[in-house]
Simulated assay, not measured.
Amino acid sequence: DLDVTCSLAKTATGASPMVFIEKDGFWHFDSVKPSSSVEFPLYLTTSKNVVGTYPLDLTLTYRDKFEQTHQEVRSIGLSVLPKTPSSLVNIESYQISPEPVCQGDIFDLKLTLKNFGDFEAQMVTVQLISPTLFATITPSTVSVGDLLPNSTSTINYRLMASPSAEAGVVHVFEIDIYYVDNLGVKQVTKNFLGIPLHGSIELIVYDVSFTPSPIYVNNEFTVSFTVLNRGTTPAMYTNVTILPEQPFQQTLESSLYMGEIDPNAPAPASLNVFVGKTKEGTYPLKILISYRDEYNRPHSLIHEIPVKVTFPPKTQETSQPTSPVLPILTYGLVFVGILVLAVLVVMFWKKRKTPSG
């Protein structure tokens, strides 16, 4: 299922300068096949004196193959021009730096104005109206002076997003351009600029341990660690995987789905690794950490852990102890032989001393 909802830009008074014709800004599609697209008409009308660029926010709500619901927001700009030739000052381009803008950031907004009309625009003044929890560090109203046809002028604003501003939301700034046209009539061109605010995600790995230790060649071991999000917004759909680089090889337990990791919430993990044939030494074990931010955009980082591998100790053969029976038996035979020899010698001498009859 895919639901598309279109939201019209609103002015500071809360009213929209545009209205829908025929439709109410909602479309439903039963399914969208891979690598295909769907088209739908969008009919709008504006009041008589509306001139400028207005954002249209399209909210996409859909379910994936796992029946999980996702929501994404896309913004498009609609330029409204006057019917008759006149002076027309509007924004030609803009630039935000640094980008993306995160909670608590100070960032710059650069506007390039251009007179698209056929006559000079006089006393051009630009006013920036910031949404709640955004502040302008530089003056919000800037005087440009006069602009000739097809001439441009650049304005720089410095702004700050509050750390408590909601992340995952497109915050709309109103930019009003006041000038006097060639007929001496005061004109205003209103623009609405949507800036998506991001929460920061900073994943670190610490508290690393190995089991067993030491780590032997041609053996498996388990690496345990803790992942901490030091940012301000959750890291979603987080997955950690061992990268198979020599001498390390993956096993069935070399990947782990950790899900959502909230800020300042330690998340433990353990992965199995096999050490293939290699020399003794220290090798970098690479762990791929992939996740998605609050806008469902994918991110990844690689964390390296030094691992020292060695050869397993050699098994020594136990020598059989020499039996003491053989020496004892040998000594006994020698003793008996000496005793017999002594007896024979004594008998021989006695026989010689005895006179013959």
Results as ranks from 00 to 15, higher is better:
168 G>Y: 01
182 N>L: 10
336 V>W: 01
81 L>R: 15
162 S>P: 11
109 L>W: 02
240 V>F: 02
130 S>W: 05
258 M>V: 15
176 D>E: 13
232 T>R: 07
311 F>Q: 08
198 H>T: 10
347 M>K: 04
16 S>L: 11
183 L>Q: 14
350 K>H: 04
310 T>L: 03
151 S>K: 15
70 H>M: 04
315 T>M: 11
182 N>E: 13
125 T>M: 09
234 P>A: 05
48 K>T: 12
289 I>H: 01
79 S>F: 15
22 E>V: 00
66 F>E: 09
19 V>T: 14
261 I>V: 05
127 Q>D: 10
34 P>R: 04
69 T>N: 09
24 D>P: 01
309 V>Q: 12
265 A>N: 13
189 T>M: 12
107 F>R: 00
85 P>E: 06
98 P>T: 07
207 D>H: 04
226 T>W: 03
185 V>R: 13
105 D>W: 10
116 F>D: 12
248 F>C: 01
46 T>S: 14
297 R>I: 02
319 S>N: 02
181 D>P: 15
173 F>V: 12
40 F>H: 04
136 T>D: 14
209 S>L: 09
267 A>N: 14
116 F>K: 14
145 G>Y: 13
27 W>F: 14
257 Y>H: 08
318 T>W: 07
45 T>D: 08
146 D>T: 13
21 I>K: 10
68 Q>M: 05
42 L>S: 03
194 G>K: 02
272 N>E: 11
305 I>M: 05
185 V>M: 14
340 V>F: 08
313 P>M: 11
156 N>W: 08
68 Q>K: 12
321 P>W: 03
139 P>V: 10
160 M>A: 12
161 A>V: 09
103 Q>C: 07
8 L>R: 06
60 L>W: 01
261 I>F: 06
241 T>W: 01
16 S>E: 07
170 V>R: 02
230 R>M: 12
205 V>F: 02
99 E>G: 06
348 F>I: 07
281 G>K: 13
38 V>Y: 00
333 L>C: 07
67 E>S: 12
49 N>A: 15
89 V>Q: 01
135 A>V: 11
324 P>D: 01
147 L>K: 08
19 V>S: 08
255 S>Y: 05
195 I>T: 00
206 Y>H: 13
71 Q>C: 04
294 E>Y: 00
99 E>P: 03
297 R>L: 12
82 P>E: 06
219 N>K: 09
349 W>T: 09
329 L>E: 02
22 E>A: 07
128 L>W: 02
284 P>K: 04
101 V>A: 02
137 I>N: 14
239 N>R: 09
168 G>A: 03
105 D>P: 15
183 L>N: 07
39 E>C: 03
87 S>I: 07
112 T>Q: 11
226 T>G: 09
191 N>E: 13
351 K>N: 14
56 L>I: 13
48 K>L: 15
91 I>P: 04
215 I>S: 04
7 S>Y: 03
282 T>P: 01
73 V>G: 00
66 F>P: 08
63 R>Y: 14
41 P>G: 05
46 T>I: 14
330 T>Y: 09
97 S>Q: 12
351 K>C: 11
294 E>Q: 13
110 K>Y: 06
168 G>D: 03
38 V>P: 02
43 Y>F: 04
265 A>E: 14
132 T>N: 14
83 K>Y: 08
75 S>E: 05
114 K>A: 15
215 I>T: 05
314 K>S: 12
35 S>W: 15
251 T>Q: 02
232 T>P: 00
144 V>E: 06
48 K>A: 14
254 S>I: 11
18 M>C: 06
320 Q>A: 10
145 G>W: 10
